[in-house]
Nucleic acid binder design. Structure first.
Lengths: 248, 248
DNA sequence: TTCCCCGCTTGATCTGAATCAAAGCAATAA
DNA sequence: TTATTGCTTTGATTCAGATCAAGCGGGGAA
């Protein structure tokens, strides 16, 4: 079992070199053991819905492999993605039973789950898990607010550049970057999903991706594989050079 | 000192009739007492900035009276409000030292503050304060996500109606509504601030407010006082009949 | 009283992104 | 091999909201 196969997320690794969003094999503590005892796995096929908005969610979970999205929908079908779950990300709401958005697997998905009750009991007993969860939630909130700026005020081109920058950064942080070849990654989303995330239409997404390619900001290999030669340039196109690469 | 003058927010009132977002005079517990000991007050004038994005924030606080906004800004000056703080709302990030947005007083503002360190110590000792804070943060995250749907997918008219509905609801919950006259409230924001919240221009806000008035959805008394005769109609105009009235 | 200022409204015009419509392309099935 | 299907690109046109530009109205200062 490799490092990234058990991303419980909830354990902060004191002095070990692995970033604390993934569990580190070298440091296992009491609450990690407790978590091990109550965890179980669930897998979903690409396109399958994990939970519907309003449903009872009786577990919390983190993504092991695959990608899931959180979306909200208006009656007439207009859709807005409100979150993207990559491996090692957490979903769930200790202290809340229902979710306010649909969770959907966009690729085949494996999640590591904990039933809510024992998880909450464990939180009671080991307070720093709760603290960690609070920090994670605050990070998500920051990310959501950054996204509000994007949705409310950025142009289509800036939106695309921002999304590419975020995916690039998150992907790089999972991949333990190999020195300094050009930064490359696969888009985990279709054009339509990108549109739903950015508050655009798929046609506009396609046009702006083409424009960024034409202008040499990115290169493409096939439709999905992106090559970024100059990350600083991409950030500039994104409209804010803030480090914005917060989780979610 | 009336009920709403000490909105520490962090205390959940077991069986008392007051909603738990404001502190209840009837139930005081140990941690409430601890909070009393470390709290202090700060006041700000309308227009004054409480903290700048990136600054160190060495306290957490809740709003006693007045209104504050959270905003993010792009280099070229485009602004997006990402939160609105009304009396009893909480700001601050236990476990984090810097904030990612500007906090500005839009009216004269009185805040009840707790220095971060003793507050965090207190959180350690009384875990349910941490839990409560996690719940509040999760609620804020839900609200932020609902706002993402608004920013990404709603029309200008729907945005205005949504904002009015949210303000109406929050205002009503602070005012202990007097039976069933028509629902009325004062807009706490200028047209420009509304625009910054909704990702619009002030001209568009003005036009759409006029349109809602023309169509009989709302009535105005002066520029700021709003009368809603048919709240259901307003919600319908807002585009989703979800109960959407989550905090923030 | 007058003036000025600020927040607001309204009108005319422009434009970025949406919409409508066709094709292209690559992978899988037949 | 050809057809089918799902995703993507590109073009033509439209339209909601932005931008540019006046003008209004109420409150405070002189």
């Amino acid at each position: 079992m490799t490092l990234h196969e058990v991303p419980t997320l909830l354990h902060r690794c004191g002095d070990c070199p692995i970033r604390h969003r993934a569990v580190c094999a070298r440091c296992d503590s009491e609450e990690l053991t407790t978590l091990e005892q109550i965890k179980y796995y669930r897998s979903y096929q690409a396109g399958q819905t994990v939970i519907w908005s309003g449903d009872k969610m009786d577990f919390v979970a983190s993504v092991v492999t695959g990608i899931a999205t959180l979306t909200q929908t208006l009656e007439d079908g207009r859709r807005q993605m409100v979150g993207l779950l990559l491996p090692s990300d957490f979903v769930g709401r200790p202290g809340r039973q229902t979710v306010a958005y649909d969770v959907t697997a966009t690729t085949d998905l494996l999640m590591c789950c904990f039933r809510r009750k024992p998880f909450e009991d464990m939180m009671q007993k080991t307070p720093h898990v709760g603290q960690r969860l609070l920090e994670m939630t605050l990070d998500e909130l920051d990310a959501a607010r950054e996204w509000m700026l994007l949705l409310g005020r950025k142009t289509a081109r800036e939106k695309i550049a921002s999304l590419l920058a975020i995916i690039a950064r998150r992907d790089a942080s999972l991949k333990l970057r190999d020195a300094k070849g050009p930064l490359t990654f696969d888009l985990p989303l279709t054009r339509e999903e990108m549109a739903d995330y950015l508050g655009l239409t798929l046609e506009t997404v396609s046009r702006q991706v083409s424009a960024l390619k034409r202008d040499g900001v990115i290169a493409l290999e096939g439709k999905r594989h992106v090559i970024v030669n100059d990350f600083a340039r991409l950030l500039e196109e994104a409209g804010d050079d803030s480090d914005g690469g917060l989780p979610v």
